[in-house]
């Protein structure tokens, strides 16, 4: 397929993460999937290179499917300067892939030029809102694309936070004029770990900015939840997803499964369940 205008750039419905363990199946079988999500950093290659074999695969997949690029290292919440070399490489990748959406996390991943490769929470206060909103704006300008920022699972909050997480997310999205990727599993994990009501979270998010939702599984350690992406979506998260669809409408949704990844058909079954939940809510509302 020729690159360019003929590529489909909308990505609706319930998509799946494109992971190396399923490359051959996707390339050979071309399964019916509305869209694939690709982790941006996995297609940028080494420090001085391009994307290599993973990018070859992604471009072949892209010829037949819409793709969203989801990053884990934009480091939007860090006090380090924005990593312009990283953003330049991301911009190159965006030009090649023509993704439907570009997203990363509302967090910091490193400081002092070091990277923890983890999604670390920010204090929810006015200073952080100012700091992050300015960086999101700057990043959107550099990339020439609108960003979606995603809420992370967290295991700590800060004593000097002055607002709940949903207000923090909504205010940054408003000031940066960006969109929101609402991770329903992350809301449930953080609500359980910090003792807030997940329904308050949904109620505090501006519906017009929610452009994508994520569903995943977690691990429980005596009731303390860890966002491991290695289990099926749990029943409380399905319930919360139904409430989110009720509030935000039929939003593009991703099934995330990154550890102990099951056969592709199992992922597809999880996506089918998300479609059923979504369709049942819509049918009830109609």
């Amino acid at each position: 397929m020729a690159r360019g205008a003929s590529l489909v750039t909308t990505a609706d419905g319930v998509g799946l993460g494109l992971r190396p363990v399923h490359y051959e199946h996707v390339l050979n079988s071309r399964p019916v999937v509305p869209w694939f999500e690709a982790i941006s950093e996995n297609y940028m290659g080494l420090r001085a290179g391009a994307g290599g074999r993973p990018l070859e695969v992604l471009l072949k997949v892209r010829a037949d499917y819409p793709v969203s690029l989801h990053g884990v290292s934009m480091n939007l919440g860090s006090t380090d300067p924005l990593n312009r070399a990283y953003l330049a490489r991301l911009k190159d990748l965006i030009a090649k892939v023509e993704p439907a959406r570009i997203s990363d996390h509302l967090c910091w991943t490193g400081v002092g030029g070091r990277n923890t490769h983890d999604l670390l929470p920010l204090p929810y206060d006015e200073a952080s809102v100012d700091h992050v909103a300015a960086r999101v704006r700057q990043t959107q300008d550099l990339l020439g694309r609108r960003l979606l920022i995603e809420n992370v699972s967290s295991y700590v909050t800060y004593a000097h936070s002055t607002m709940p997480e949903w207000e923090f997310l909504a205010e940054i999205a408003k000031r940066a004029d960006c969109d929101i990727l609402l991770d329903i599993n992350n809301i449930h994990v953080s609500a359980t770990n910090h003792g807030f009501d997940a329904r308050d979270y949904l109620a505090g998010i501006p519906a017009a900015r929610v452009r994508e939702m994520h569903l995943a599984g977690y691990s429980s350690h005596d009731g303390f939840l860890i966002d491991t992406h290695d289990h099926p979506v749990s029943d409380p998260v399905w319930d919360l997803y139904a409430q989110a669809v009720r509030r935000f409408g039929p939003t593009p949704t991703l099934i995330e499964w990154d550890e102990n990844i099951p056969p592709f058909d199992r992922l597809r079954a999880e996506a089918s369940r998300a479609e059923e939940v979504r369709d049942a809510v819509i049918a009830t509302a109609a």
Partner: peptide, 22 residues
């Protein structure tokens, strides 16, 4: 929300947490 008498600047918080976590 709990109150803290002397909230750290974000830079100090991130530098300090980075050292603890790694």
């Amino acid at each position: 929300m709990q109150s803290s008498p002397r909230p750290p600047k974000l830079k100090l918080l991130q530098d300090s947490l980075y050292r603890v976590l790694t």
